[in-house]
């Protein structure tokens, strides 16, 4: 891949759960399927999507090549460390999210 112009990459932030969040995950899967580099960060109510079996759209997004992380602060705040995460979902903190945000060519879409 040429470094002449950095490829765009997406940082998607999901803070909700439920029907509209599943639509956002479908957006994410479309982006990933088109070959975009897509990082999805689940925070606030959005961490519930990362629980194993909770979302139909998240495994599809991961299968399309997307990457997903659940917010460690939210998991701790909501006493969700015992909850099983969907295979492929990692956890991270806001420091790494800031690093991704600051990478050149990153587009952020926040739901």
């Amino acid at each position: 891949m040429t470094q002449d112009h950095p490829a765009e990459r997406y940082l998607l932030v999901e803070t909700q759960s439920g029907g509209t969040a599943e639509r956002f995950l479908a957006d994410a899967a479309t982006l990933a399927g088109a070959g975009e580099r897509v990082r999805l960060f689940l925070a606030g109510d959005g961490v519930a999507l990362g629980i194993r079996g909770a979302s139909a759209g998240l495994p599809r997004f991961l299968g399309a090549g997307g990457q997903a992380w659940a917010d460690e602060f939210t998991l701790a705040h909501r006493a969700l460390h015992a909850a099983p995460l969907t295979p492929g979902v990692r956890t991270t903190g806001m420091g790494e999210v800031a690093d991704w945000l600051l990478e050149p060519g990153t587009r952020v879409v926040w739901h």
Binding site: A48, A54, A83
Partner: peptide
């Protein structure tokens, strides 16, 4: 159950 916490 939705949060995988049946046995918590």
């Amino acid at each position: 159950t939705a949060l995988g916490l049946d046995d918590a």
